Amino acid sequence: MVDQETLSVGCSGCLSTPELQFDFTMAFQPIVNLGNGTIFAQEALVRGLNNESAASILSQVTDQSRYRFDQACRVRAIQLAAELGIQSMVSINFLPNAVYQPDLCIRTTIETAKQCNFPLNKILFELTEVEKVKDYAHVRAIIEHYQKLGFKTALDDFGAGYSGLNFLADFQPDFIKLDMALIRNIDQDKGRQAIVRGIIQVCRELAIEPIAEGIETEAELAVLKQMDIQLFQGYYFAKPSFRSITTHLNLSPG
């Protein structure tokens, strides 16, 4: 289990929720930078202790345990990243509705990073869409507070679900991750190509870096590289590694 003493530095809202009745760990999938041939980040993805799927773990999260689960994910991701000697950024998903107050709920993250000697400026928070955002102003406050502390932020699954241009009109994360539904077979779909080009133009004007996720084929990658995207993630490069990291990749920008 995640160390409960570590969680005790968090806000009272988290501590008032019941302890988790299940344990979990993380797999890591690289986000690669083909512009300079490096691994930009490793995304921490929830898994069961025997590599059960994220869905099997998330299905056990209740409204009452959501807050503690969110905090526990942060702790476990940072602890594992330190244990595995990750030198790149580590990307951690967070649930916006699980953050009571940005300044209080971040304390556990900061304390864990200090204990593990993991630099705060190497932590990237991804706003996920497993639940509908209830309060846009609250999400904006979270993003702005995290950026002020030196964390990087990303909007996951852009182009699907509840998010979209409304998010970017209200606040700007450092990155957006293009949803894999937009990426799939983009080499064969003029409509998807036009949409992605439009999103990239918006990103340029707002100083946001796009990340193309869900890359599975060389043809998809080729089209996206022509659009001047630098950051990529997907099975084409590596599947998530259970409690380990993939480091030996062909990251030639050519």
Rank of each mutant, 00 (worst) to 15 (best):
Q201W: 00
I186A: 01
E19I: 08
R107E: 13
E144V: 00
G191P: 01
I245E: 14
A137Q: 11
K114F: 07
T108S: 13
R140T: 07
D70N: 07
D228R: 15
N117F: 12
F118C: 06
L58V: 07
L249V: 12
M180T: 03
I86V: 11
I123Y: 01
A54M: 08
N93I: 13
L95D: 15
K132G: 11
Y146S: 10
D135S: 15
S53C: 09
A54C: 08
S241G: 07
C203D: 04
Q115F: 00
E43D: 11
G254L: 03
L124C: 02
A181L: 10
A154H: 13
H138D: 04
R47V: 12
G35V: 03
R74T: 05
R184C: 09
P240R: 11
N250V: 11
T108N: 14
A141F: 13
K152L: 06
A44C: 05
L7N: 02
H138F: 13
S241N: 15
F40E: 04
M1F: 11
L34Q: 09
I183V: 07
G35E: 02
L155W: 07
E220V: 12
P173H: 10
L178S: 03
N121G: 13
K122C: 13
T217Y: 00
L178Q: 09
I186G: 01
D103Y: 14
A194V: 01
M1K: 02
G37D: 05
R243Q: 15
A27S: 14
M1I: 11
I229Y: 05
K190W: 06
N121Y: 12
E5I: 11
R192L: 01
N97C: 06
P210C: 05
R192Y: 04
G48T: 04
R47L: 01
Y162Q: 06
A160Y: 09
I110Q: 14
I195K: 01
Q64A: 07
T128V: 15
A44H: 08
A169V: 04
I92Q: 09
A98D: 08
S163D: 03
Y236N: 10
N51A: 04
Q193E: 08
T6P: 12
K148G: 10
N50A: 02
F22G: 00
G85P: 08
Q115V: 09
D157G: 09
F151H: 04
D3P: 06
F28R: 03
S244F: 13
Q101M: 10
H145L: 00
A137Y: 14
Q101C: 10
R76L: 00
K177I: 10
D157N: 06
L182W: 07
F237Y: 13
E129S: 12
A54L: 02
D170S: 11
